[in-house]
Amino acid sequence: MGRYVIRRLLQMIPVFIGTTFIIFAMVHALGDPVAALFGDKAPDPAVAAQIRQQLGLNDPLIVQYGNYMKGIFTGDLGTTFSGQPVTELLKTAYPTTLKLTLVAFTFEVIIGIGLGVISGMRRGKLADTGVMVMTLIVISIPTFVIGYVLQYLFGVKWGIADATVPEGAPIQSLILPGIVLASVSLAYVARLTRTTIAENSKADYVRTAVAKGLPRRRVVTHHLLRNSLIPVITFLGTDLGALMGGALVTERIFNIHGVGYYLYQGILRQNTPTVVGFVTVLVIVFLLANLLVDLLYAVLDPRIRYA
């Protein structure tokens, strides 16, 4: 187990450096932060040169990246063009996004796995067909379309839920955005769970468990689910990235002032420090989540631990 953890941690280092460097390089190579600072007006060359000097933009890209990385590890993500530290902006934005992602994740796990188990256990029956058709439809509707339609129906027409999320983002107002954000992933989780459940329910160990007279409930929860959930957990880990990306869309629809909102504003105004800072943090969260999933995987499946 220890060796596995160490190997996994070591493997993460080049990935971390590579990912952050690509983001950094793309933004700096393709855009001009000084020109963006001046908006549509052309900057005075002398002033532009001075700002370049101040921001260290004259150094080679590698040096700039090195400085930036040094900053990240000391908790400094630079300052936005408006003079606010990026970390401060992140502190105001991140809790909201985290709340939204958690709400969505809860829906994804509970409803997704629940539907998957129901449909996997009753393969070929009406419930199974219903779940399959429903998930197929949900998968083929892009998140933003689901978002607008549900917002219109629930928020505006029937008035059941809040159409937009107020300041501070209380949990009850995040339920509808959470469902919207979770919808596509939820459908994938349901389908994946169904497949693994259906595959494993024919396995020898399930037959043994049934044959020795265990109650059906115990067979399902202790034998079948424990083995079937391994691929689902892998999916959930990689899906965090999709959830964070989807949060950008959901936050725009429901006017949630989270990471996606500020990131979107940063992109519109070409506010390079905000964009690079936010995306880097999101990527780090994504990589850590994947690491966690891999470790969890080893806990759940001894074959990996001892490999």
Binding site: G241, A242, G245
Partner: peptide, 15 residues
């Protein structure tokens, strides 16, 4: 792994 580590929608927004 490096390219896999960039969620596609986030990458799209940046690039």
């Amino acid at each position: 792994d490096i390219f896999f580590g960039i969620p596609i929608l986030l990458g799209g927004l940046v690039f």
